[in-house]
Amino acid sequence: MPVSQEISFRRFENGQWQSVIGYVVSESLVRLHVNGRELVSLMCTPHELEALALGFLRSEGMIRGLNDIRMMKVCPSGTCVEIWLADANFEPPTRRINTSGCGGGVTFTELTAGIEPLTSDLQVTPHQLSRLLMALQFGQRTRGIHTAALAEGETLLMVVEDVGRHNAIDKLWGRCLQEGLATKDRILLSTGRLSSEMLNKAARMRAPVVVSRTSPTTLSLALAAAWNITLVGYVRRDSLNVYTGGERVVEDEEALTHANS
């Protein structure tokens, strides 16, 4: 199923009605079954479901890589993903915590458990982050969908979309696993709000710089500080907010030129 679907609708603008062809985001309920048992139901964009499943399992610490997967397939209707782990004795947890994710994020792990602070010496500049986020948004065909990306330097290495911001991060990690792309010491970008669960995923990906076009939360700021993650929000063409880990954001020549002009 595509990320978005074409529809026709009417728009009222400047006192006039017009017929418009546009796109809306695809959304459906998808169940993940692990070792024969339902693990979770996700409201998501039903595209790249294998990547979503992989990323979800990885971010929940249930797998470490593709070798932990014995078999995975998306059912013909596209409403479930069947996963059998190499560890046949693995029992999927039944405890679920619903989170603030508008895409129906869930997590089973305690937020701060087992994550060491990041020691990366990666450095970024404000204009670099601005350009990356603009490039990220430029690729969107429709509004109302969350995009997540992994970047290095000025390059977006991997970009994914989903109706849920949690799903987008999981899908990104899943695609990286599929492609053998390391997430460590790279920049994580998201169009969505950075809640504590999002920071948890970023920390597990060992991404030292996390960038959003919107806001963090109080808990995500506390976690970012504890894990030594650089958290940057409200990134626009000429502005951004650095909330934690400011030492990784250095001024570039562009900024100095602009300030002196």
């Binding site: 079954h33 070792n35 024969g36 069947e82 059998w84 046949a88 004795n89």
Partner: peptide, 10 residues
């Protein structure tokens, strides 16, 4: 079917 496969696993 899932229960049967799971049983075979265990």
């Amino acid at each position: 079917h899932r229960r049967l496969v799971r049983m075979l696993d265990l």
